[in-house]
Each structure stands twice: as structure tokens, then as C-alpha cells.
Amino acid sequence: MGNTFGTKFKITTFGESHGKAIGVIVDGCPAGLPVDEAFIQSELARRKPGQSKITTQRKENDEMQILSGVFEGKATGTPIQILIWNQDAKSKDYSHIAEKFRPSHADYTYHEKYGVRDYRGGGRSSARETAARVAAGALAKLYLNAKDIQVNAYVSQVGDVKLNKSYQELDLTKTEDNIVRCPDPGMAEKMITLIDDTRKDRDTIGGVVSCVIRGVPAGLGEPVFDKLHADLAKAMMGINAVKGFEYGSGFEGVKMKGSQHNDAIFTEDGKVRTKTNYSGGIQGGISNGEDIYFNVAFKPVATIMNDQESIDVNGEKTIVSGKGRHDPCVVPRAVPIVEAMAAIVIIDHFLLNLTTKLS
């Protein structure tokens, strides 16, 4: 029913924004993998609410509990269940929309699909669910890190404030040095100011998260329907508020001719390389060993603190007033979510690849 993602490394998330807890079941985690609980917790801390003035002020420690699948610090190969208790849900903040549909939210579509909806914080449609994905992604990262595969995302744009530098020009170790998670200090300050000004105007704004995956070996991905970039696109488009995905040269590539866009092939120290990387590390749906890089566009948060026209469950006109605690811009907290979903795709294809060749 759309709650499960992956083939060999399969995750199923559960829970609602204002329910008792949220969590994830990870099936297919390789047996013997050292499970660093402190690392998983640190990844959750990067996503948790209430971490700065430009994020929602909901206070959740997001302390996780591993209930199964780990023994003496290692994965046993059986399903790993991770639970995260909800601690700071204020459901009364949403009682005014119990029978109203908020513009650009999932209220109306959930009502039409199921005939019933959990209006408390958006229920299952809330980005609160992504904490479970981050926990699963942390497990994937532990596996990939052991194979020298690194996944790094950062904020490259907020509104019209755009970082016009490629990832090669940036020191991505500085991404966590500021609250907006932009590795360029000067641009970070401009982004923070824009988000804070937007918040004070009781409004919201969108942005872009860029991601680079280094160390992926050639040969990951399937050639037809399960192309590596197609699975990355599905993973990213399944994140709340995402409106666009592009990899490699993306939409800018349409301005080039084939003679400019083709990535010339050569060998270096016995390894096949390309002189440029407009392909974004993927050709024919299969990784070629170069860096995989992509951009993910996030819309402005739908909940704004100003009155909006809408309708209720009876089709009558009404006014929806924004209440509760919400992010004025999702991209600072979306960085670890993008990394998590990317890591889940890569480990899934890595494990799939083990079954398609003898060595």
C-alpha cells in the first residue's frame, strides 16, 4: 500500500505525526554489519525539529530504540525494527481543520481516497514520517561507508538565493557549520536571512537540496525499468514537498549540443574514466564509476500563518487559518532525508548487483 520501498534492502515505515510513535522495519540488512547506534542517533538529530530559529519549534528528541534484528552490536540478517516515540504532539492545534481542507495539503486527497483522515498534524502525510527513513538510511550509510561510498547533500538554493557553484568547488565538510546547511558561509547567511524574514511575514519559501554520491563502482543499476537514476528519482519524489528532480546536466543539458555534452572516455591507472561528467555518473541506467550528482526541488511549505480560502467536507466555502508549529522552509532539515533515501537506493542496487554476476 505504498509504505514499503526497496527490493533487497527493503524498508517499511509506520506511524503518524501525532500518534504514539513512528518507526521503520528494515528487511535485508546484511548480517554481520556493525550497527553503530550513536551514528544512527546523530543522523536523526540532523533531521529533528526544533533545532534552530528557521525550523519548526516542535520539540522532539527523536531518540530511537532498536527492538529487533541486532545482537551484540551486529545485524543478524533478520528484520530490524526501529521505534521513535512522539513526545511533543499538540493535537489541539489542528482541531480547527477537522472538517476543513487546507490548500495544497493532502487533506482533500486523503479524504477522497480513504473516506477518513487523521487531521492531527497531517497524520501519515506529515513529514514527521521521514524520521523513520533517516533511521533506515543511517543503516544503509553504515554499509556504504565500509565500502568507501560517501553520500553528501547540502542546500544550494532558497527562494531566489542560489549558490552558483558546482559541488567540486565546495568544501562539503562545512555543510553542518550553519543552520541552513549550505557549505558556502556567505550564501548561507543570505539564505538564513531570507528564511527568517519569510517566517516573520507569516509565510513560507522553497529551495533546492543538492546531493553527490562518491565512490559508487561501475555496474550498479538495471538497464530498462529499474535504471539507477529512475530509482533515485522515485526515492526523491517520494519525499514530502518535493516538486522536481534532475541529475547530471539536468535541464541545463538541453542547451548543449551532443559534441559538447558527450563524456569522452579514457583510462587512468587502469581505471575507465570520463573527462567530463554531464551524465551524472550514470549511463544507460547503470553507474559508470564517476560521481553521481543531482538536485531536488522543494516547494514552499503549504501551511502558512495567514488566512486562506478553502472548502470544508461538505463542499462549503470556508477560511483556513494557519496554526501550530511549522517550518518556514523545509530544505535545512531535508538534507539528511535526501542523503538517507539516496543511501537506501545505492545499497539496494549494490545488493541486487551481487545476484546478477558471479563475483
Rank of each mutant, 00 (worst) to 15 (best):
T4W: 06
G6A: 05
K10V: 15
K10L: 10
G15M: 11
G15W: 08
G19Y: 01
I22F: 03
V24Q: 05
V26K: 08
V26H: 09
P34Q: 11
P34K: 13
E37I: 14
A38L: 13
A38S: 15
E43I: 11
R46N: 05
S52I: 01
R58Y: 06
K59P: 06
M64A: 15
L67K: 13
V70Q: 12
A75K: 07
P79F: 00
I80W: 10
Q81N: 14
Q81Y: 08
I82H: 00
A89C: 07
S91T: 09
Y94E: 01
S95A: 15
H96W: 02
I97E: 00
A98S: 12
E99L: 03
F101R: 06
P103Y: 00
H105T: 04
A106H: 07
E112A: 13
E112W: 05
K113W: 03
Y114D: 12
G115F: 12
R117P: 11
D118N: 05
Y119H: 02
R120P: 05
G121K: 01
G121C: 07
G122W: 02
G123H: 03
G123K: 08
S125H: 01
S126Q: 07
A127C: 01
R128G: 02
R133Q: 03
V134R: 00
A135L: 03
A136S: 04
A136I: 03
S156I: 07
Q157I: 09
G159V: 00
D160R: 02
K165W: 03
E169D: 03
N178Y: 06
N178T: 08
V180I: 00
V180G: 02
D184V: 00
M187D: 07
M187N: 10
T193M: 06
D196K: 14
K200Y: 07
K200Q: 13
D203V: 03
T204W: 00
T204C: 00
G207L: 12
V208E: 05
V209A: 01
C211P: 04
I213R: 01
R214F: 07
V216E: 02
A218I: 09
G221F: 03
E222I: 12
E222R: 08
D226T: 12
D226F: 14
D226P: 13
D226N: 11
L228G: 04
L232I: 12
L232Y: 14
M236H: 03
N240K: 11
V242Q: 01
E246Y: 01
S249I: 06
G250N: 05
G253P: 05
M256P: 04
S259E: 14
Q260T: 14
I265K: 15
F266R: 13
V272T: 14
K275H: 08
T276L: 04
G285H: 08
I286N: 06
S287T: 08
N295R: 14
F298T: 01
F298W: 00
K299E: 01
V301D: 05
N306G: 07
D307Y: 10
D307G: 08
I311W: 05
K317M: 09
K317L: 15
T318P: 07
V320N: 00
P328C: 04
V330M: 11
P332Q: 06
R333Q: 09
V335T: 14
P336R: 02
E339S: 13
I346K: 06
I347K: 09
D348H: 06
H349K: 11
L352D: 10
T355I: 07
L358K: 11
S359Q: 15
